[in-house]
Design a protein around this nucleic acid. Structure first.
Length: 493
RNA sequence: GCGCCACUAGCUCAACGGUAGAGCAGCGGACUCUUAAUCCGUUGGUUGAAGGUUCAAAUCCUUCGUGGCGCACCA
C-alpha cells in the first residue's frame, strides 16, 4: 500500500523537475576516491594557509544529513560508509548555472562531489565543490536532527533509518564484527577449521529447548530448525576432524525478552584429546582476546557494574555454590526435601513440578546465578541436566562440565564430551523417560548419532558461547535487540 | 502466556473533559563562512483501531492492535 504524504509528494515533484532538465537522480554512477574519515585524518591537522597552497583534490560520496543555505552559498554535511561527516561548500561563483540544482536537494539524498579541500573561517575542513551528481534521490524525510530517532519500535523495524541517524548503532555492529573476527582469528591461529552443519534437522537435538517445525514438500518430511549444532559437530569428530568450530544461528521456540531472540548466534567449537579443564583456560584466553580486540581493555563498565576480565577467573563447583547458600547436596538430591527447602527459602518454582523432578537447577538459577557478576566458572554439574557430558571419574553422579557466568548471565557452556556409546544410549533413555513424565524439553533419542559414536569418537572437549550475549557484554547493550540488526518483531499492521 | 506503561503532524514532544499546539523538517521569500545558522511568511492531524459514557472525548470506560519494561519459559 502506497502512502500518500505531502512531504513525499514534494520530493517526487523535485524528482520530476530534475528529470525534466535531463538529470536522472538514480541512474548516474559516481566513483568517489576518498572516504570522509580518511580525508579528516589526513588533512584536519593542516591549517588554512597550508591547505590553500596544497589545494588537495578529493571526491566523496554520501548521504546529506544537514543543509544550510545562504542564497549564493550553501553548506552541506554528508556522511559516508566511513561513518564520518564531512562538510561540503557549494558556491554559486564556482558552480554558476549548476548552482540552481541544489534547490532540488533534500536531506537524505545521496550525492557524489569532487572538488578541493579548504578550511572555513571557523576552521572546519570542507570540500569546495567543483562537480556534483545526485546519485540517489531520497523520497522520505529523515527524522529530525536534534532528537533523532528514539522510538524503539521504529528503530528496530526500520533499522536502515536507525543506522542512518544514530551513529552509536553502527559502532555497536562494528564491535560485533570485530568480536567475531577476533574469535575466528583466535581459533584459526590454533588450527581450527570452520564448518557448516545443517539448519534443518529431522531430530532436534543437542540442547534442551522447544524447536520450530517446518516441512519439506518434496521429501514429505517434517523437519526442525536446529536448536544446537552439537550432535553434527561431534559426528565430524568421529569423521576425523580434531579442531572444528561453527558460528551460526540456533532457533528456539520460546519467549522473547531482552535476553532472548528466537534466532540467535552461537559458536560451538570442539577439540579432540582435550577435556573441560583445558577449555577453562582456553575460554579465558579467547574471551580476553575478543575483549582486547573490540573494547581494547579487560576492565570496563556494564551499566553500573565494573567488570574485570583479568584471568584467572573464579572457579566454583555447582554444589559448592549451592552449599554457600545453605543447600547441601544431600537435600538437593532428595526431590521432596529440595522442593520443601526451595519453598522455605522463597524460590519461585514452576507451578507444576513434575513428580520426582530434581529442582536444584531452579534453585541455582534463582539464588546463585544473579550474583555471578565477575566472570565465574561453575563446574561439576549433576548428570541429570547434562545428558551429553562425560561422567566424572571419581563421582558418577557429576559430569566434567562448566558454565561461564558474567553479569549474572550464562555466557558459555562446555564439557568433556561423552564418547561412550553405551552410556550415551542410557542417557538418551533417561531423557525419554523424563519426556514421558512431561518434560517437553528433554532430549530425543538420536539413533544415527549413537551409530556414529559406536564407530568411536576420540575424547574431546566442546563448548558453546552465546555470541549475542557476549556482544551485549562488550558493547554495554542491555537488550539483545540492540546487538541484532533485525530482531524478531510482530508484523506491523 | 500474565501484569504495568506507552501510542497526538515526517521526527521530538505539549495539551489530561470545553475550538488539537510548539520546535525541527517541509513550502515561499531574504542572506557568500554556517555548525541546532538567522530573519519574515506559511502548509501539514480520522490524536494506533473500533465501540461506549457525555451537551462536549486526544483526555473517562471497554475491547482490540503494536511496542517497551517486568514476570513466566529459556540461552
Amino acid at each position: 500500500m502506497e502512502e500518500i504524504n505531502e512531504l513525499i509528494e514534494q520530493r517526487k515533484k523535485k524528482l520530476g523537475e530534475l528529470r525534466a532538465v535531463g538529470i536522472d537522480p538514480y541512474d548516474e554512477s559516481f566513483q568517489a576516491a576518498d572516504y570522509a574519515a580518511a580525508l579528516i585524518d589526513k588533512y584536519s591537522a593542516l591549517d588554512h594557509d597550508a591547505l590553500e597552497s596544497a589545494k588537495p583534490a578529493c571526491s566523496v560520496a554520501g548521504r546529506i544529513l544537514a543543509m544550510r543555505n545562504f542564497g549564493k552559498l550553501a553548506f552541506v554535511h554528508i556522511s559516508d560508509a566511513s561513518d564520518e561527516r564531512i562538510q561540503l561548500c557549494f558556491a554559486r561563483d564556482i558552480l554558476q548555472d549548476r548552482y540552481q540544482i541544489i534547490k532540488k536537494l533534500d536531506i537524505g539524498d545521496i550525492i557524489g562531489v569532487a572538488g578541493r579541500l579548504f578550511k572555513t573561517r571557523t576552521g572546519e575542513l570542507t570540500v569546495e565543490v567543483h562537480e556534483f551528481k545526485i546519485v540517489s534521490k531520497s523520497l522520505r524525510p529523515l527524522p529530525e536532527k536534534w532528537h533523532g530517532l528514539t522510538d524503539v519500535e521504529t528503530r528496530y523495524r526500520q533499522r536502515y533509518v536507525d543506522l542512518i541517524v544514530n551513529p552509536a548503532v553502527k559502532k555497536t555492529f562494528a564491535m560485533r564484527s570485530r568480536i567475531l573476527k577476533a574469535i575466528r582469528d583466535f581459533l584459526e591461529e590454533r588450527g581450527f577449521i570452520e564448518v557448516e552443519t545443517p539448519m534443518m534437522h529431522p531430530i532436534a537435538g543437542g540442547a534442551a529447548a522447544k524447536p520450530f517445525k517446518t516441512f519439506h514438500n518434496a521429501l514429505e518430511l517434517e523437519l526442525y530448525l536446529r536448536i544446537a549444532p552439537e550432535l553434527y559437530l561431534k559426528r565430524l569428530l568421529v569423521g576425523g576432524y580434531d579442531k572444528i568450530f561453527e558460528i551460526n544461528k540456533n532457533f528456539r521456540n520460546e519467549g522473547i525478552s531482552t535476553k532472548h531472540n528466537p534466532e540467535f548466534t552461537m559458536i560451538e567449537f570442539y577439540i579432540a584429546y582435550k577435556d573441560y579443564k583445558f577449555l577453562m583456560d582456553f575460554t579465558e584466553e579467547l574471551i580476553c582476546e575478543a575483549a582486547m580486540k573490540s573494547v581494547g581493555t579487560l576492565k570496563f563498565k556494564y551499566g553500573a557494574l565494573d567488570i574485570d576480565l583479568t584471568p584467572p577467573w573464579k572457579r566454583l563447583t555447582f554444589f559448592g555454590a549451592l552449599q554457600e547458600k545453605g543447600l547441601t547436596e544431600a537435600i538437593a538430591r532428595d526431590p521432596k526435601k529440595s522442593v520443601e527447602w526451595a519453598r522455605q527459602h522463597g524460590v519461585d518454582l514452576p507451578k507444576d513440578v513434575p513428580q520426582g523432578k530434581l529442582i536444584f537447577d531452579e534453585i541455582f538459577s534463582e539464588l546463585v546465578e544473579p550474583e555471578l557478576i565477575q566472570p565465574t566458572f561453575i563446574t561439576d554439574y549433576p548428570i541429570e541436566i547434562s545428558p551429553l557430558a562425560k561422567r566424572k571419574k571419581d563421582n558418577p553422579a557429576l559430569v566434567d562440565r562448566f558454565e561461564l557466568f558474567i553479569v549474572g548471565r550464562e555466557l558459555a557452556n562446555a564439557f568433556s564430551e561423552l564418547n561412550d556409546p553405551i552410556d550415551q544410549r542410557g542417557r538418551f533413555q533417561a531423557q525419554s523417560e523424563a519426556k514421558s513424565m512431561g518434560d517437553e524439553e528433554a532430549h530425543s533419542m538420536d539413533e544415527d548419532f549413537l551409530r556414529a559414536l559406536e564407530y568411536g569418537m576420540p575424547p574431546a572437549a566442546g563448548e558453546g558461547i552465546g555470541i549475542d550475549r557476549l556482544v551485549m557484554l562488550l558493547t554495554d547493550a542491555h537488550s539483545i535487540r540492540d546487538v541484532i540488526l533485525f530482531p524478531q518483531l510482530k508484523p506491523e499492521q
